[in-house]
């Protein structure tokens, strides 16, 4: 699983990062963000690309598990 740390970044950087990462068409990604907008935006992008997203929240951070 490819891990991406997008903490400290705001819109649209995390989406740009997941978009670039998805060019390699891996089966699963794990992305960490630290704000609601990034959590929501990355979820939208992954779902738009046909992936499923699971979110775990902990201490103001969100870990998104993105799988086909």
């Amino acid at each position: 699983m490819k891990k991406i740390d997008a903490r400290g970044l705001s819109c649209p950087e995390p989406v740009i990062m997941i978009r670039q990462a998805m060019a390699s068409k891996e089966a699963a990604y794990e992305m960490t963000v630290d704000n609601v907008a990034s959590r929501e935006n990355v979820t939208r992008y992954a779902e738009h690309q046909g992936y499923k997203v699971e979110v775990r929240a902990s201490g103001g951070e969100y870990t998104l598990t993105i799988t086909r």
Binding site: S10, C11, P12, V15, N35, V36, A37, E40, N41, V42, T43, R44, Y45, H48
Partner: peptide
């Protein structure tokens, strides 16, 4: 673009 998650933080 909205469906792809290009949404400004202000919208949230």
């Amino acid at each position: 673009f909205a469906d792809m998650g290009f949404i400004p933080a202000g919208a949230y």
